[in-house]
Design a protein around this nucleic acid. Structure first.
Lengths: 210, 210
DNA sequence: ACTGATTCCGAGTAACCACTCGGGTTTCTA
DNA sequence: TAGAAACCCGAGTGGTTACTCGGAATCAGT
């Protein structure tokens, strides 16, 4: 179930065009991180992708659509990753689950740094808030599902809130980890796990304490 | 000890000029929130401040300096607030201190919403990262001081890390609270306090447990 | 009241941006 | 292999932006 294709001026029919679209998204991803959304000129994006500005506008109606398509790609990829981590989840503890998901997200972050500014709506223009928000909602939904499956007796509203807080908290501290030199990252990550587990245990006390 | 005056093209000598500079900062604060840094044209900032574009560039060498001066103002104001909250701190519990500071920051956030995007380096251009980072360092320093004064035996490096995590965590969840409708904010804020207290208690166990 | 410093103004400038368009090239289909 | 469809190109266009500059208005000290 891949997310709906965004408004493309013309959907790519040939493999060659699809490749070009992917390269454009890759270039946009890089430039958004390097210089920010506003400063990432469409000309520069096209050039870095080895395409011309005309080709870019062949497939994207405007600049915003590029960021939107990038967000869609993230939603798909992250969804796949989280589901995979949930599948091979026989009977682990909450700590192990948190550990596994945090590590997975951290890997993804490192390979796709633009997901961070996009997710927090920090790509500059408020016009992009929708794209980031959509990605956030998707992630929150995944966590909410996990929480509800593990604690069928919990208040659904509480589960939703806890999922939102957990995502915000995770995003923030992962970001902090990325900002640190590589050798410090494990330290910060450990701190994130402490915070996440501590928070969830307080907010939704395990049934074992019942 | 007010922070050093930023590179002004010409420092205001007369009260009239100082007033104008303040009005310009107020206008910039509003526009940064409403439309973001890049879309906040210097002409618009000047117009909203009731000044002309020429006046703006009389005191600020470029657009970035406006944001920088705004950050300086925040550093001063926030520093005063936190110190005030620390002074009337006879022998309260950690929970009460967290509660007090979170409430103070939340009030400030509500009156100065631009502090959020500035603090997280989300005002668009990466060029502004320095201004936001400076503000963050100032806040972290305050928290670090509090932690060290309350637990003189703790590892200083650990206190610094904990202060950083706490600030990130607070900023993020306050942001989430601001994004919610007003009647939901207390709920989210309560969640923040749970997370903060829970984290600090885990990371730096109280001496009472010794 | 005089004068120099300070403040204020806003049309103008050069640079840059998102996006268009007309036409060439490659791939598909029959 | 011919024609159509898909793809690709990049100079050009209209609009916006940060910032300048020459001079007018206002102030402070004498």
């Amino acid at each position: 179930m891949t997310s709906a294709a965004r408004p493309l001026r013309r959907a790519p029919k040939q493999a060659r065009a699809q490749l070009r679209v992917n390269r454009i998204l890759d270039a946009a991803e890089e430039l958004f991180v390097e210089v920010g959304y506003d400063a990432a000129a469409t000309n520069r994006i096209a050039f870095r992708a080895g395409a011309s500005i005309g080709s870019l506008y062949e497939f994207f109606p405007n600049k915003q659509a590029v960021a939107q398509a990038l967000a869609d790609r993230y939603v798909d990829q992250l969804g796949a990753i989280i589901e995979e981590r949930m599948v091979n989840d026989p009977e682990r503890t909450g700590e192990q689950l948190v550990d596994s998901i945090v590590n997975a997200l951290n890997d993804f972050w490192q390979r796709h740094p633009a997901v961070v500014p996009l997710l927090r709506g920090a790509l500059g223009a408020p016009a992009l808030l929708a794209a980031g928000e959509q990605l956030r909602v998707a992630l929150v939904g995944h966590i909410e599902t996990i929480l509800l499956e593990r604690r069928r007796d919990v208040d659904p509203a509480r589960a939703l809130l806890a999922a939102e807080i957990t995502i915000d908290l995770t995003r923030t501290i992962l970001e902090r980890a990325q900002a640190e030199p590589a050798h410090r990252r494990p330290v910060v990550l450990r701190e994130l796990k402490i915070a996440a587990v501590g928070y969830l245990r307080t907010a939704m006390p395990p049934p074992s304490s019942k």
